[in-house]
Nucleic acid binder design. Sequence first.
DNA 1: ATTTTTTGGTTTATATTATAAACTACTTTA
DNA 2: TAAAGTAGTTTATAATATAAACCAAAAAAT
Lengths: 93, 93
Amino acid sequence: MFSELNPILHSQLRLAIVSFLVSNGISDFNELKKITGATAGNISVQLKKLEQAGYITIKKSFKDNYPHTSLEITKAGIDAFEEYVNAIKQYLK
Amino acid sequence: MFSELNPILHSQLRLAIVSFLVSNGISDFNELKKITGATAGNISVQLKKLEQAGYITIKKSFKDNYPHTSLEITKAGIDAFEEYVNAIKQYLK
DNA sequence: ATTTTTTGGTTTATATTATAAACTACTTTA
DNA sequence: TAAAGTAGTTTATAATATAAACCAAAAAAT
């Protein structure tokens, strides 16, 4: 009837991040901050969790002298997102 | 871009309960236990939260000598559910 | 008849999660 | 060189989800 919702993705902020990355492939810390409106601390924590889950990769570099964190969605991330979408659709009708 | 997800509904179990009640109008404790597979304790707690939010009403009676808890969705519950569905759809594409 | 099991829950304790606040480190500007 | 800004991380706290333990009554078994 109601299948499980992947708890990594069933979080407003992590879902927004993954959703955005699935659409856009890559992004960076500041862009995520702008589009989600979340605090930097919260984003930092949630990015780590997504990385630990294998759903994104985090690359740190320097850009115009400043530290720069860029994010990329993984195959596993895309797959998990698609599964989540199918699962939650059962709840929405 | 991403609108807020009502935190009362953005919970797997509460969403399942409300979703089921929106489809069926009324239900009872045991039916929810069966369709969700959740523990009685968890259901008990979440029903109270949904009642506090004004999304369901809880009626206790005796049926065949046993205590019996029946649930009904409210107008506010239906409205909140519909809003939640519209909001989360933005995350799913 | 009294112990044991089942029904139908509630309360409480604990683990997890989300979040904001505080902090670090460095850069730019005044 | 002091102040303000950028780009984050870490830590503390509040909120949430959940399971475990408990309660009360009914039914079934001994």
